[in-house]
Every structure is written in C-alpha cells, then in structure tokens.
C-alpha cells in the first residue's frame, strides 16, 4: 500500500477515467468526464484548463477520493480511491472551489480542529498552525471570526488548512476565481513557494495566465474530454503561431473578406478578428496594404486562450 506501482514518481494515474451523473428520480444521465488519461509526477504542478462544465472539478473530486469513479481506473499515491479513500485523503490537501471554512470557528481554531480530523496530536497541530498562519500571512487575524476575513484571506486560510497534514499532493480547484488582482498575485506567489518546497500541485483553472504562471504541464479539457496536453509553451508552439494580430472594425464582415488571405489562420469573434501570424507587425503592414482601416490593431504573443480557441473554436471565458 502506498507504493507508486505505476512507475517511479507517478503520484496520480488515470486511464479511461469516467464520471456519469445519474439524476435521482429518473432523467437522462450526463457524462461529466468522458474517458480521460493523465499522469502526474512527484513535484510537478499539473493543471486542468477548460471552461466551466468541462469536467475539471469533477475530475478533481474523484482524485480527492470524495466522488466515486464511474469507469476506468484511477490510482492516487498508488492506491485505489474506492478501497483506500481514507488512506489517500490522509495524504492529500484539498482546496475546493468555494471556501468551506468552518464559519463557527475562529481562524486559528479552523486549523486546530482540521488537524484533529487527520488524527494528529494536538501539540503538533498547535505548532503547525502557528507556522501556517505565518505562511498565509494571517498571524494578526488568528483570533478573528472567519466572517471578518476578505475573500483573499479566506482563500489563503483554506490553503493553510489544507496543508495542516503536510500533504504529498495539494489539489486546488479554481484557486484564484473571484479574487482581485492583488490577492491573486499574492496567492500565486504562495503557491509558487509551495512548489519550490516540493509539494505536488494539481489545479484547475479557466484563467490562461494562471495556467501559464503555475503549471509545468497541463491538459486542456472540453466537454469531459482532454483535447490537448503538454507544457504551456509546447501547447502554444504546437497549436498556434508565435504572435496574434487583434483587429476591430466598423464592419467586420466586409473587412474580413478583403484580408482573408493574411496570416496562417484567422478566428472571427463577435467583437474582433484574430489573425495568427509568426510576425504580427508584418501582418499588420499587409492589412494596411489592402487598404482596410481597422479601428484598433494590437499585436500580442499568443497564449493558451488561443490554443483553446484553435482547438474548440470557442473562447474560454464567455
């Protein structure tokens, strides 16, 4: 038990993993996760990128040994969640999408009580709680009620709480959704520090910049399936040109007809036209040569958003 039998350093392995939700009292069953394969190695930061409803959170709950697997195989820390749920959960840290802090307890009590669920001795938890409050920058809030915390503070407390058992793997479901930019950057910095300390991170996000900042490797999910996987750089290089030219027009239809031949590929969005080209400035010059006058023109490096658009024809955040 607990051996990484799937190969050296493989902490999570999913083969043909499926999750089917059958509504109670009849109704059509929906396949939230439709057969996915992935492996997560020790020390890695592994991301699930995709829009809402892609099956990311469902996958996370199965890995967390909270939601039963409907099909395929899943090994977490070399164990089967079906038979070794408590043993797996003992070595995981879990940060759910909505903060589920115990609002009846103070900030410090949240850590002290949570540690007891793992059967840790009180003295050890007390010491650990002090370190974690420091890590989460909540030392001066230690004796406040959870209600008194801002959204960013709550999220940091949830992360601190998930670290109380010194987990091998930290699961983060949409860790920065709903936070303001400053709070997001502080959180990223904390997560980066954890990664440097050797904690394996598994996270879901629908933010490109988050995936690019934090993930060593990621899979792109859509409709319960994996549509691409690799490193952030590799995915961009493999599915996109180096740069993107974003154009806005008064009459997009008319303009699009005249510049159809430009760039490697084009993508029409309701409010703008994207021209994929290795050299965006060159493409812009070519646009001007056709006599078309865009309202605005922006050249930028392509990112994971573009990868997703290329793969699915849709944007990530509607």
């Amino acid at each position: 038990m607990g051996d990484e039998s799937a190969g050296a350093g493989v902490l999570i392995e999913a083969v043909g993993l499926r999750k089917v939700h059958t509504p109670r009292g009849g109704g059509e069953a929906t396949e939230a996760v439709a057969g996915i394969d992935f492996r997560v190695h020790r020390g890695e930061a592994f991301g699930f990128l995709g829009p809402n409803g892609a099956g990311k959170s469902t996958t996370m709950r199965m890995v967390a040994a909270v939601s039963p697997v409907s099909g395929g195989t899943l090994r977490v820390l070399g164990m089967d969640p079906k038979t070794h749920g408590p043993a797996i959960r003992a070595r995981l840290g879990s940060v759910p999408q909505d903060d589920t802090l115990d609002t009846e307890l103070t900030v410090r009590e949240n850590l002290l009580v949570y540690g007891r669920y793992f059967g840790l001795p009180r003295a050890e938890i007390r010491e650990r709680a002090t370190q974690l409050l420091d890590f989460a920058r909540l030392v001066d809030k230690a004796d406040e009620q959870v209600e008194a915390l801002s959204g960013g503070m709550r999220r940091r407390l949830t992360i601190a709480r998930s670290l109380v058992n010194r987990p091998d793997i930290l699961l983060l479901d949409e860790p920065t959704t709903g936070l303001d930019p400053q709070a997001r950057h502080l959180l990223w910095e904390r997560l980066f520090r954890l990664k440097q300390e050797g904690v394996t991170l598994l996270l879901t996000t629908h933010y490109m910049d988050e995936a690019e900042q934090l993930c060593d490797r990621l899979v792109v999910m859509d409709h319960g399936r994996i549509v691409a996987q690799g490193t952030p750089r590799g995915l961009i290089a493999g599915h996109c040109t180096r740069e993107v030219l974003e154009l806005r027009f008064d009459d997009q239809e008319a303009a699009a007809g005249k510049i159809r031949h430009l760039g490697d590929r084009q993508e029409k969005l309701p409010d703008r036209l994207l021209v994929y080209a290795d050299d965006g400035e060159d493409a812009l010059k070519a646009v001007h040569r056709t006599g078309v006058e865009p309202l605005t023109a922006l050249v930028r490096r392509s990112g994971l958003e573009d990868v997703f658009l290329t793969l699915t024809g849709r944007t990530l955040v509607d």
Binding site: P86, R89, L92, P96, Y117
Partner: peptide, 14 residues
C-alpha cells in the same frame, strides 16, 4: 447552509 461536512469529508473521516 454552512456545508460544514464537505471539507470534513475531504479528510480521512468517513
């Protein structure tokens, strides 16, 4: 309201 058990059931407790 509080969804207290969601976080508890993410620990070894059943």
């Amino acid at each position: 309201m509080l969804h207290t058990y969601d976080s508890i059931l993410a620990t070894p407790l059943r």
